[in-house]
Amino acid sequence: MSETSSSSSTRLSVFKTYKLYVGGKFPRSESGRVYEVSDSKGKWLANAPLSSRKDARDAVVAARKAFGGWSGATAYNRGQILYRVAEMLEGRREQFVREVADAEGLSKSKAGAVVDAAIDRWVWYAGWTDKIAQIVGGANPVAGPYFNLSTPEPTGVVTVVAPQESSFLGLVSVIAPVIATGNTAVVIASEKAPLPALSLGEVLATSDLPGGVVNILSGKAAEMGPHLAAHQDVNAIDLAGADSVLATELEIAAADNLKRVLRPGAADWSADPGTHRMTAFLETKTVWHPTGSLGASGSAY
């Protein structure tokens, strides 16, 4: 943030100290480290926390703790909260436009379009929370006297390596589908452009989203990623923002407890998101129960 408008006033602007968002709180990195974040032209914007593996560990603990409540919340309730995120963002639109413009070197109007798309993405996923089960689950007509129902369930704690370039729309596009279905997330923000992500934490904290559902870390994916990919209490990993070398390394580490892995793919974050980012982190549970006849009538020999 730079000083501005010195012509009309000599007032110094108040800098913002960017902090992590973990377990609903805003801690500094336990390591005490920060790194410089610059805009696309190399101008200093702020210091961001340089998270450590211990921060990642704490984030997993918070995400696990939040999982029971969030996955157990009604889909309607989750939808209300995701929509609330959109409402909160709309109110802070100007801030995010500025941050995105700085982060991605976009013009105001292009940054505005990105922020609008990100807000709309929350609305899109808010609407999905109570529909995805009807799309991917259902009754199965088994050949026997049984009721058989398949339902999708969140896989658990998901590590998200957020896109490096698309610091906000890309970020929202990977977080929202993870939590819409009831997972909780540990997010490694874009390394070079983490500020929109850290600000998003502030929005999430005021959107009725329970603490720990989304945890946002800034720093190096290459530093934290391997610990999160190998973490035995993490159930899945989205490699959206990992380069091919890191993605391969993390996928290998993820095999230790057979995490669900969403590999990096071609990224057009403005395209129709479809459902695959949701289904990638859903389990299918199939429950059987006998039906049988009403009474002990004529069972054949």
């Binding site: 199965n140 088994v142 058989n148 398949s150 549970k285 199939t286 429950v287 059987w288 129960h289 006998p290």
Partner: peptide, 18 residues
């Protein structure tokens, strides 16, 4: 668990995801 059998066990069917 991916398959839950209530008041039955080890039932399989091609229409039922496993």
């Amino acid at each position: 668990a991916g398959v839950v059998w209530a008041n039955t066990f080890n039932k399989f069917d091609p229409t039922s995801p496993f």
